[in-house]
């Protein structure tokens, strides 16, 4: 007997509906998960996220789409992730600035409690850097000069209220010096300001420092211990200043995302970070690998949020 066309169709339909029935056992994800990157494609955060994309999709057993929503220092994209449906299908790669400093500068449609925290995906220290031929060799040199010449040290900041800016404010506060803050537009322009003599100091990310070490030098790494990859660089702590200002970011989900979904995403995130391509990428950037699980990351963000609020408030910044 030749199977009729209707018969085959019916069989096919039965198979498909059976497949559908078995689905709930593995409910999430049944469609692509979107990660919103709050900066333009091609930047550091974007490239790091895209390096995670494949390994994380594999661990999750689904697809991941990266979407770039740029603007207003990353707050537009983070807000977009915060107001998405809390089903785990929209996440944000939320960096330190939009999460813990921007809310203290202006009114935003989200705050630190608008999210479920999934995992910390990267974190690297910053450093206080000066021109390579600068007479300053240690933090003490810099501070001694700053004390003798109040306001004369010019500090290039990549953006007002950014982590480098807050690090500068904290240094000035602890050392009792006065500096002039010159807002420029990011790391490249800050480097230019140093090279053309407009500014004396800036605070770059460690990978920016390591790729520009023939033009700038570090006076102090802003974290507790020396870096494994660059053990010759002194920390601020060794020089008497307990400054710890890493630049970090991690995955967040909208508030109300089911706990088991968050756990599943966290697990996939962890596997992605452990994966070979991701480790190789961080290695190329001269950046240590970092990870925190959902609970740790949530507590960490809240702690930094509070700390940055304090520092900004002392410097006279309040949300308008």
């Amino acid at each position: 007997m030749k199977p009729s066309r209707t018969m085959s169709a019916a069989l096919a339909a039965a198979v498909i509906s059976l497949a559908g029935l078995s689905a709930p056992a593995q409910a999430f994800p049944d469609r692509p998960v979107t990660i919103v990157v709050p900066f333009a494609a091609g930047g550091g955060t974007d490239i790091t996220t895209r390096t995670m994309q494949q390994p994380m999709a594999k661990a999750l057993g689904g697809e991941i789409v990266v979407k770039n929503t740029a603007g207003a220092g990353g707050t537009i994209g983070v807000a977009e992730a915060g107001r998405a449906k809390p089903d785990g299908y929209t996440l944000g790669m939320a960096p330190v600035g939009p999460l813990t400093t921007q809310p203290h500068l202006r009114k935003l449609p989200y705050d630190v409690d608008s999210f479920e925290y999934v995992c910390l995906a990267y974190s690297a220290p910053t450093s206080i850097a000066v021109r390579k031929d600068s007479p300053f060799k240690t933090l003490d040199d810099l501070i001694a000069y700053g004390k003798e010449n109040p306001g004369k040290l010019t500090f290039a900041v990549q953006a007002i209220g950014s982590i480098p800016h807050i690090a500068g404010l904290a240094l000035a506060e602890e050392a009792g010096i006065e500096m002039t803050y010159l807002p420029v537009n990011g790391d490249g322009p800050a480097l230019k300001a140093l090279l053309d003599g407009t500014a004396d100091i800036f605070v770059p990310h460690i990978s920016f420092l390591s790729s520009n070490r023939d033009q700038i030098k570090s006076l102090a790494i802003l974290q507790g211990e020396r870096l494994e990859g660059m053990p010759d660089l002194a920390t601020a702590k060794e020089q008497g200043f307990d400054l710890d200002f890493p630049i970090w970011g991690g995955l967040v989900a909208p508030k109300g995302t089911p706990a088991e979904t968050v756990a599943q995403l966290d697990d996939a995130c962890h596997q992605a970070i452990e994966s070979e391509p991701f480790q190789a990428h961080m290695n190329k950037l001269g950046q240590p690998v970092a990870y925190m699980d959902a609970k740790e990351f949530g507590a960490f963000v809240h702690q930094r949020y509070e700390q940055n609020r304090q520092l900004l408030k002392e410097a006279g910044f309040e949300p308008k």
Binding site: G42, G44, I47, G188, L191, S207, N212, H281
Partner: peptide, 26 residues
């Protein structure tokens, strides 16, 4: 100098660094 000339070269600079090329006088 390792300083991008415009937004396009800024993206290219990022890619160069990933390629292991370190721009600058050296």
């Amino acid at each position: 100098l390792g300083i991008p000339g415009d937004p396009v070269t800024a993206v290219m600079l990022g890619a160069l660094i990933i390629q292991g090329v370190t721009p600058g006088p050296q």
